[in-house]
Design a binder for these strands. Sequence first.
DNA 1: TTGTAGGCGTTATCAA
DNA 2: TTGATAACGCCTACAA
Lengths: 331, 331
Amino acid sequence: MVGHMAVTIKDIAKVANVSYSTVSKALNDSPLVKPITKEKIIKIAEELGYQPNFAAQRLVQKKSKTIGVIWPTLERIAPAAIISKINEHAKHNEYNILLSIDEIEISLQQFQRFQVDGVIAFDEQAMTDFTGNHLNIPIIAYGVNSPQKNFSIVDVDYEGAISQAVQFFSERKYKRLAFIGDTDSRDDRQLAKLNSFIHATEKFEIDHSVFNSKGLDWINGYNCIQEILEEDTNLPDGVICSSYDITSGVIRGLQEKNIHIPRDISIIGYDNIPQMSNLEVPVTSVGVSNDSIAQSLVNTLIMQIDKGTNEKMVYSLRSSLVVRESTRNDI
Amino acid sequence: MVGHMAVTIKDIAKVANVSYSTVSKALNDSPLVKPITKEKIIKIAEELGYQPNFAAQRLVQKKSKTIGVIWPTLERIAPAAIISKINEHAKHNEYNILLSIDEIEISLQQFQRFQVDGVIAFDEQAMTDFTGNHLNIPIIAYGVNSPQKNFSIVDVDYEGAISQAVQFFSERKYKRLAFIGDTDSRDDRQLAKLNSFIHATEKFEIDHSVFNSKGLDWINGYNCIQEILEEDTNLPDGVICSSYDITSGVIRGLQEKNIHIPRDISIIGYDNIPQMSNLEVPVTSVGVSNDSIAQSLVNTLIMQIDKGTNEKMVYSLRSSLVVRESTRNDI
DNA sequence: TTGTAGGCGTTATCAA
DNA sequence: TTGATAACGCCTACAA
């Protein structure tokens, strides 16, 4: 149990009978202090429950070894898994992360105050308009699709991902593809997927149609597939679902009508997350894994922190296709 | 565009042709500086893009006006909504929040380094074992159910909430109640709800049974109600669902079998969140609103920060019942 | 009304 | 190998 006043290196110095600068060196494992002295000092520090004052350290060091993550859209849970991974990768590089859920400008201010070394931002919407011009720390945004002056960008190659799915179907002679997604969403990602679908099916010359789920929840996917089954006489044999939740609803809908997956209809889900294999039918999926995204984000940022470079770059992450049980896989 | 070296009050002082202590006062809106000087200084500060160095400020002030929130279970999205609200209430009290998703001990260390003024923790599991004894900042935990030596607790009165639901049914002469929840969960909250249900139904002398959804997802609720409908000959007329997601699945299952809500079966969901009114049938619900929880958490913490008191208290939040369309409401 | 000087807890640079 | 001492940027008596 420690008293109310925090213990400082000066307190340690007094007890150890050395100068406080020696204590500082000892605690920082400097080779300039005799091993015996070092041990003694460290022991005393522990006994006293010494905790270095971070503010003081940073005042002189200018580095906090922490990365700030801006996540203003707490409700949108998609980034949560990525952020977990970011934390892992940061740890691996001896960085910590701190989250702020305020809007971009405020978060940034707060992070600058706390002197984080770099920032990862998750609000595409806001970032697009963002023109902060008194920035002295590197920022890297996830999912912004137009190059920016003030920060680097990491994004997923949606075009490639969806194209990959279509090609998979094409190679296996599927006759008619459907895309289920929130097609009038204002989310750029959703639109990118939609456009890629149209583009790819035309390129591979496959009959195709697009269905609007009017939302991104499982219930929207569920309702949408119901409508398709009821109204459409010309059923698709391959379906691409634009998100995990929609996929989940679509599968439920098909199961209910006793339509066999993948014999009657095959499904490829967008989103390369492990949960895809836990659905009622493990779903073949395309997309970039959260781990890849996180790793790319962290590595890029740390590189910029270390180099102190001001190059603003754009990275597009390549998708991979994982075959599970929701598709006929004979070629 | 600012150069690389950050601008300090000394830079401002030079430009303004005053001493830097005058600048400090001016920037802190001290009455000890002539309005004209003050204006001039503030203007210059803005032009130079001055940002106070937080580390330096804190080094002398010992206060950061920020609250640390520990949220190690990012995957569990339940706290997200509460945290949003916490942010609002904190703002309202001129505090900022910072999130850490590391385990409790590490988060706490990090927050101590950054000198946050107080901490709100969300990991019941870990907190229960937590015996950190070199704490000099107030901590308050949400959802721990045994009193602790080192921190205060805010929790929901599950007993009261479920009891409220049962009483509602009782007063309206419901004959047979069912509880659907993850009954072999190791989550104390789930168990508390279950026990309260049994306790309350016995107290009100209503016929009742308990069903294990074997999970907390919508699909678990969906599957569970299906089984009930198929196997049970003695159907309940009132159902209490232990979470939002389960409620969502149960409703879908009932709709599918054309069982009318609330004519044939009434439903009360646990979880007082607005989404309850957006389900296919707006659901009557019990529970404590996230806003109440957040407010209680923030106010309690700030009180402790201000008072510097060391009293460790336990608060139990009273539930309220919101009537919507999933229950027959004539008494 | 303004300026001077001391101190907050560390690290870093000398000198001893 | 150790110890003084000067920063770091800011706030706050106290002096002018």
